[in-house]
Amino acid sequence: MLSPSPSLSLLLSNLNEFRNSYDSDNTTFSPQGKLFQVEYALEAVKQGSAAIGVRSATHAVLLTLKRSTGELATYQKKLIRIDDHVGVAIAGLTSDARVLSNFMRQQAMRDRMTFGRAIPVGRIVQSIADRAQTNTQEYGRRPYGVGFLVIGQDETGPHLYEFSPAGTAFEYYAHSIGARSQSAKTYLEQNFESFESASLAELINHGLSALNDTLQQDKSLSVANTSVAIIGPADPAIEDIQHSAAARRGYFRVWENEGVDGLLRAWRRSRGEPEDGPQEEAAPDTAAAAGETTEGQQPSAEQAQTAEGSENAPPGAPAGGEDIDMEQH
């Protein structure tokens, strides 16, 4: 958590009768012109598990690390389809994400209905950024506690945007949000220049490598905790297009559980690792780890607030949340 400047904290401790500070509501600027409530909201995003986004000239891909709150719980979904041509990955408060993604769906449908067009990706992201901005300016509200990575494809090609609770939307070649996303960012910064001309398979491999860097020491990517979303023409060599009409059409599709197995295997092959992955997967060490959070701090807040749980749940646990029926689209 960020705290007010040292001089300020000092002052606060001296003023018991005037218990005032600049971080208790969103309509107050600090003397330095900062909005602490917004900065704290950005921290909420960092509490969520990691999400990576990468983009080439032809494709945009999201890769996320799912968490489960425990043995009895499913993994929390982190990928949400908005429309055929737009989808998001979330990090932070899941309930806030549902509100915003629902709004995005309305926006997308509105453009489909009135103009018969796929809403421009930049505009749909801006529409939630505008909403988020009002939550940083009016008393009685709080900034949203969720960050999005948005991929989409429109007349101007594939795109990757980041939406943040500060009310901003930026377009990136590659980006990461959530817990330990800085490690992923380091990987992306070293490699992003090759992304533009990368094939879909290469792009996914880069994304998985970046995602892998956000893991705790003893953890690894598995079919249970990894999900991948793609927009752009399908590659039958790595995607099971038989089971996904969306893939056949190049629309937004999510690969997880057994569906992501092929992608993970291809990635491990590309790194010269055993295709089946580390043995850890076969022998879950879950009992102790289940209740533990990734950061090892504030477990209650983590579980209650982010509802994304821990990455340490048993790998066999099924993915939960809403189903994205591939056949429907």
């Binding site: 103009f115 018969g116 067009r117 421009p120 930049g122 505009r123 801006q126 429109d154 007349e155």
Partner: peptide, 22 residues
């Protein structure tokens, strides 16, 4: 006006026709 910032092409003839039809 929006296109100055995000460079997205304006409404196509089909988009305008759809709007008028609605």
């Amino acid at each position: 006006a929006l296109a100055l910032t995000d460079s997205h092409p304006s409404l196509s003839p089909k988009n305008i026709y759809q709007l008028l039809s609605n």
